[in-house]
């Protein structure tokens, strides 16, 4: 069974906002095919009744008071904004999304 093909790859590239280079497409598809074929071995493992785990450490959810935790960092906001190519006040100025 074919796991991935050109059509799926192009769709994924679109979602990823990555342009595929004409002559790199075949190689990428081939690499992905090999990797996905390798993943097939997972199907053999019995995982009935096994709950998925979200991370390596058994961390519990942490709640905290809704206060300005990052006030020290907010002072550094300006530095991040300075890195914008164009700004309008404290906002990032970009070309229109819809035309």
């Amino acid at each position: 069974m074919e796991i991935i093909n050109k059509k799926i790859l192009r769709h994924l590239a679109e979602l990823s906002k990555i342009e595929l280079i004409e002559d790199g497409e075949e190689k990428l598809l081939d690499d992905l095919r090999k990797i996905l074929e390798y993943f097939e071995e997972l199907k053999k493992i019995d995982t009935i009744d096994i709950e998925p785990i979200a991370g390596g450490a058994d961390l519990i959810n942490i709640y905290r008071e809704d206060r300005e935790l990052l006030d020290e960092l907010y002072k550094k906001q300006e530095k991040l904004i300075e890195a914008f190519p164009e700004r309008g006040g404290d906002f990032l100025k970009v070309p229109p999304v819809f035309q």
Partner: peptide, 24 residues
């Protein structure tokens, strides 16, 4: 691209969810 694939609708259970079970 691979990450977007394993998280895609229709593939999520077979890849991502399966992997999280194996991780346990």
């Amino acid at each position: 691209i691979l990450g977007n694939f394993v998280l895609s609708s229709g593939y999520y259970d077979a890849y991502y969810s399966k992997a999280q079970k194996v991780r346990r």
